[in-house]
């Protein structure tokens, strides 16, 4: 199983049961996860992303015997962001990056974001975009961060056939026609971490092709079992289950290898 959505380091607002990397490794291994794509919570609020990315790469190398693939973060509104991108690829050998537009203060029609998509595509990176990290109703009142509006994404993706983009924590914001339109725009995938409703995967597959869903847990902020049990809650043919649990993630990364 490949988990496309985990984070290392510390959630800024409380300690989490698995925010110690060895504990997270144990939890993921017990669930049968063979590869976990890891961002760092530090990227949300730290200004020095280069340092955060270096620590992430180091932590991934030191724990889990190859379990983690590091996904560094780049903020296109920050000075010298192209150098951060270069270090992700050339220094840390990352195969993808993870973006947090709402925590970094830009919208998806921002020219900087568009330039970053192009630069990442040139470097053959998978781009993950987290639409949110936390329910706005439970955020710390001093750090209130509205979710990202995904509306500009479909046109941006349609105009960039080589771009590979994965939306994290987006099922819930994206549904129905908007989800279908975005899925048809190009090479785009969605993780199940924030998918809700009984038998949610089954329902989502009525508007989304099964090759566009990926297993993502949002651990350790979310309890890892939530994503695992979603696979049990929906009645899925084995090939569809395998695609969601592993193969779609592999496909999204394949062109980036």
């Amino acid at each position: 199983m490949i988990d496309v959505n985990v984070h290392l380091s510390r959630w800024p607002f409380r300690r989490l049961p698995d925010d110690d990397t060895p504990a997270l490794v144990q939890r993921l291994r017990a669930a049968g996860v063979t590869q976990a794509w890891a961002g760092t919570f530090d990227a949300l609020l730290h200004r020095n992303l280069s340092d955060a990315n270096a620590r992430l790469a180091d932590e991934c190398a030191r724990h889990g015997d190859g379990l983690f693939l590091p996904f560094g973060s780049v903020n296109p509104t920050a000075p010298d962001w192209r150098e951060d991108l270069r270090r992700c690829v050339e220094v840390h050998h990352m195969r993808g990056i993870r973006l947090y537009p709402n925590y970094h203060g830009y919208k998806l029609d921002d020219p900087g974001f568009v330039a970053l998509l192009d630069a990442a595509t040139e470097r053959n990176l998978l781009v993950q975009v987290a639409l949110k990290m936390e329910d706005e109703r439970t955020q710390h009142p001093l750090v209130s961060v509205p979710a990202v509006d995904p509306a500009p994404l479909a046109d941006l993706i349609a105009a960039r056939p080589k771009l590979r983009l994965m939306v994290l924590n987006g099922l819930g914001i994206l549904r129905g026609e908007a989800l279908t339109k975005l899925a048809r725009s190009g090479q785009v995938w969605f993780d199940i971490a924030m998918l809700e409703g009984v038998a949610g995967i089954e329902k989502t597959l009525s508007v989304l092709p099964s090759n566009r869903l990926a297993f993502g847990s949002h651990a350790p902020f979310f309890i890892h079992e939530a994503a695992v049990l979603k696979l049990q809650e929906s009645e899925l043919p084995q090939p569809v289950r395998d695609a969601i649990a592993r193969e779609n993630a592999q496909a999204s990364l394949a062109a980036a290898s």
Partner: peptide, 18 residues
């Protein structure tokens, strides 16, 4: 809080608790 919520996500709070 199903059916709006998933049984899975809510059971996990107990299943995964230490």
């Amino acid at each position: 809080d199903a059916a709006g919520r998933s049984f899975a996500s809510q059971l996990a709070k107990v299943a995964g608790a230490k």
